[in-house]
Write a protein that binds this DNA or RNA. Structure first.
Lengths: 350, 350
DNA sequence: GTCCGGTGTGTGTCCGAACACAACGCACGC
DNA sequence: GCGTGCGTTGTGTTCGGACACACACCGGAC
């Protein structure tokens, strides 16, 4: 199993390495005859350039930017960041640097405010979290014009020219949650859907899609119970206790429920404190949710490996720009089902 | 964020690059004064060598060998091989080659027969599937003496000096299967455990451990049904039909069961053909099992991403030998729970 | 004073690819 | 016949690190 070098190709086709180089890179200034000779050899030997040597010779520095929501330790976007950092570290020797730009996921203008800075930074690739659809579309159009490749993460947006997309199918993950909850109850048992409201919230499509999938599963099963919606307030924990106490005093028969964002731990904590048995399904492997899974106050978590997503986003840009590989454009992440017994093994093999 | 080169260190400490090189590689022949000066600089700048340049300069070729069971297309070890091949391809530019040596997983002597060939091959690293405990121990002792690093895959073997181990906790995956099956039945329903016998079989520890975990889960739940063991024959499909027909005519109340190896599809096919409703749990995402999951004849699969395992094994050797990183020695793979609804997303993000 | 060994030290080349630059041949014009 | 210009080609240097080799220096032996 011989590996060929440019020098070998040059020798085989009777030209110099410079000519081979011009042909490989389509730089022109090559006679038809040389072109023919080299192409003939190339066809025979299946040449793969040595990527190590290439990236050493290309003295280029690559700067990637990542536009992601700001986060607290242990939250979803923190985990995603871990993956980004891991990729950055691994690609350090390739002269790749990743700069993270944070926005407030509940405030569109904070996202828009990042754009000018992004353009100044003259980066070669961008990772974009797609919280704000319209703003993202506007940004991608500008990046298209500047011919800067970008990767989308979270929700998929059609008609963009992204190099890759990483995310989950929210509808299906809701559908699966439907099955997991339905299997734990009787077909006529009542259920609760807990929702968090935040001042000035826009509806988050991801959460809406999950609920849609969830409800669709139940209706396909001829589910005969009632689904109660309970509104909670993200910023006001004391208020929530009162709301929940009130709800369960009026609807004591409700013994199972779901919450479509990563705040299930807030409910888990409530049930745990009151020693109330409740079948609760939540989303995302964040530290607080894991604790609830282990103490039994959450029965299932549905997750999507944010670290792997972050890692893959950066790697997709790397593969596109440096390795010049074809990158699979649409990548739905696995929908992981986690219970008390398998969560200890849910590590990140990246 | 400046990156330092050997040349920079040399300039900063007032010596030549050769001296810095000797100090970094502990090649000796350096005066105490030079040692001191360079170490002082090294402490200040946190030097990380450029891995790209290093692996270009090291003209070394790395040959790894992988001792794994032979397989048919789509089977467990085939998937593992995919991961190995993917790693090999990715590391090609680093001058890493992986040679696969196959043995018959039901015949210890076929494993032993590979050892002489392995020693001749003078490879720098070995991946070993641990089917035959004693033979593996003997091999690892020889490798220890030859100072050839190795990675174990499948079952963990204590007291070896392996660089890394990748596998699943069989007991816990059986325990989880117990929960998944128990949640689908009533506490007094009967269950079936299907076993495949093969001529000259030794008991496979992995399968035994799974069953142990499974039974332990049930006994902790005060399970009150009977567990029937059904013996089937790996090589004789017609015989199995008769055995199953006979079993279900005598025990028609059994509506759920499990099989602890990857042959659940053989049972799934049986139930599907007879249009018999049966709650069946199996192991491993092999193509045939996936088909059964989708047509409903298998309710759950428990899996462990063989591709990722294969990939990581090779990468562990690479990281140890070439990158000289610390590799986490014991790596239990996640225990994945797969149902009809999430199997379409169970791709391999490696 | 010369020769020899050993110890440190610096320089040079190589790895494979990228790219700049010099140089070549040839046709054409004056 | 000679210079100009263009199209084409080969050579040389670079990237950062590894390693071989040559050489400077010093002390001791003759």
């Amino acid at each position: 199993m011989k590996t060929y070098r440019i020098k070998d190709i040059a020798a085989l086709s009777g030209v110099s390495t410079g000519t081979v180089d011009r042909i490989l890179h389509k730089r022109g200034k090559v006679s038809e005859e040389a072109q023919r000779k080299v192409e003939k050899v190339l066809k025979e030997i299946d040449y793969h350039p040595n990527l190590i040597a290439r990236s050493l010779a290309l003295k280029k520095r690559y700067r990637f930017a990542a536009l992601i929501p700001s986060f607290a330790k242990g939250e979803y976007w923190d985990k995603l960041c871990e993956g980004i950092d891991k990729a950055a570290k691994e690609l350090f020797s390739y002269n790749v640097e990743v700069e993270k730009l944070y926005f407030n996921q509940y405030d569109r203008s904070s996202f828009d405010a990042l754009i000018p800075g992004l353009e100044e930074a003259d980066c070669q690739g961008v990772v974009i979290a797609t919280q704000f659809r319209d703003s993202v579309i506007r940004l991608t159009e500008r990046l298209d014009r500047l011919e800067i490749p970008y990767v989308l993460i979270d929700a998929f947006i059609e008609n963009t020219h992204c190099v890759a997309y990483y995310g989950t199918n929210s509808y299906d993950s809701g559908y699966i949650a439907g099955r997991l909850l339905y299997e734990q109850i009787h077909p006529t048992d009542d259920l609760a859907i807990f929702r968090f409201i935040r001042k000035g919230d826009q509806l988050i499509t991801q959460v809406m899609k999950r609920e849609e999938g969830f409800r669709d599963y139940l209706s396909k099963q001829a589910y005969g119970g009632r689904i109660h919606a309970v509104q909670l307030y993200a910023d006001e924990p004391e208020k929530n206790r009162a709301i929940l106490d009130d709800f369960f005093s009026r609807q004591p028969q409700v013994g199972a429920g779901i919450i479509f964002n990563s705040r299930a731990h807030l409910l888990g904590g409530y049930f745990h404190a009151k020693k109330q048995a409740f079948k609760l399904i939540g989303y995302d492997v964040i530290d607080a949710n894991v604790a609830c899974l282990l103490d039994g106050s959450i029965t299932h978590l549905i997750a999507q490996r944010p670290e792997v997503q972050g890692f893959n986003c950066v790697r997709a840009l790397f593969r596109h720009l440096i390795l010049k590989e074809k990158v699979e454009p649409i990548n739905y992440m696995p929908i992981d089902i986690l219970i008390k017994e398998n969560i200890p093994y849910y590590n990140n093999y990246i």
